[in-house]
Design a protein around this nucleic acid. Structure first.
Lengths: 199, 199
DNA sequence: ACACACATGTAATTGGTTACATGATTTC
DNA sequence: GAAATCATGTAACCAATTACATGTGTGT
């Protein structure tokens, strides 16, 4: 019945790195799985309470870092079991919704330049994320290679990198197609561009 | 202020192909943008009513197909304007949430085989979708090449195909990595259980 | 003194799925 | 006459975001 995925993100993060506060958990999420998963405080804090009530996490006194008002948590044995249970269940694929592709799909209703603008933004965004992932990869190899989770982290990073590269390659071609749409072959004496469409 | 994306999907679909009922719209959505966008009846029918009340779509008598109880709609001039307006606005990127990657990321908490099972399922699923997209591509070239939207439809299909191929390539490698994890550095059947790399 | 990051929480809203309820038409 | 598909809607529920509210510690 458990649909609240936030609970499992928290459990998983605490399994890797215990003694974290809600604030820290969120930061960790952003820094590790951020490129394919997001969590908001409005979700984290209530879930933390529920996990505590269910005995899946346990409070741990803030040992050292700061003496600020904060509550740290660690995963409990039953929490780990719960996490492992969930990990064994087939992932559910939620209906994808990609607004970028949707706007592109309806591109014929507006000037080609509108779609080109979306694609250029998409390109920039992907380049940015790609560079941070590559940094993460380098950093990870230097810092986390001894963790048991390391091979899995690299796998997800590779996935991200592969998809970002596919996106970037695709967008080069897409921009070329749109440019050809804007300059129809007959009107312009200087243009001999043939449309990319590779077989 | 308009956050309800369903409205724009409907508008866009009706712009391409008028005189469709709610039922048909959903089918069209599935058959065209289905691989990156989903809509449920619970969302479509109320939205249809709202669009009608706002004058963005107009009822059209069911002309021919069947004489069943149904209401067909077409996009109105103001609806088309509204759609074009929306298309010009930068797409918003919703926080991605990929449960498959999340489970893989936490893979060290369970036996490698658990993750391998997820990946194999992922692989199968991707292969299926890839083959339907390739079919769609062929069908599209035969049937819809004369539509003004055609180049844009092809673009989104190409995007899908590129990503699915990236996923499939990645998963081959991922399975190899996991297999290597299960059999620690031993190509030799007579290998002794040796050091799991602790410096 | 001020800004910024740390830190925790609640309330309102919403976008969306799922299940429920109902019935007509076609096809085997 | 049973099953599948066509067809329309509502109600319950829920996960999640956003905005709001409040306060502490650190560095400049």
């Amino acid at each position: 019945m458990e649909r609240n995925q936030t609970a499992f993100v928290i459990l998983g993060i605490l399994a890797i790195h215990p003694n974290q506060s809600g604030y820290e958990i969120r930061k960790t999420v952003q820094q590790t799985v951020g490129f394919f998963w997001g969590e908001s405080f409005g979700q984290i804090y209530p879930t933390l309470k529920r996990l505590l009530a269910d005995g899946l996490i346990i409070p741990s006194a803030s040992g050292s870092k700061t003496r600020m008002t904060r509550q740290e948590y660690s995963i409990s044995p039953s929490g780990l079991l719960r996490l492992q249970e969930w990990l064994a269940v087939p992932y559910r694929e939620d209906p994808p919704r990609d607004e970028f592709l949707l706007k592109l799909f309806f591109g014929a209703e507006v000037a080609p330049n509108v779609s080109a603008t979306h694609i250029r933004r998409f390109q920039e965004q992907n380049r940015k994320v790609l560079s941070t992932l590559l940094e993460l990869q380098a950093l990870g190899r230097a810092r986390s290679a001894h963790y048991p989770g390391f091979p899995f982290w690299i796998l997800t990073l590779n996935y991200g990198v592969a998809h970002l590269r596919a996106s970037l390659e695709w967008s080069e071609n897409a921009l070329a197609v749109l440019a050809a749409l804007e300059t129809p072959h007959s009107k312009n004496p200087h243009s001999e561009e043939d449309i990319p469409g590779k077989p």
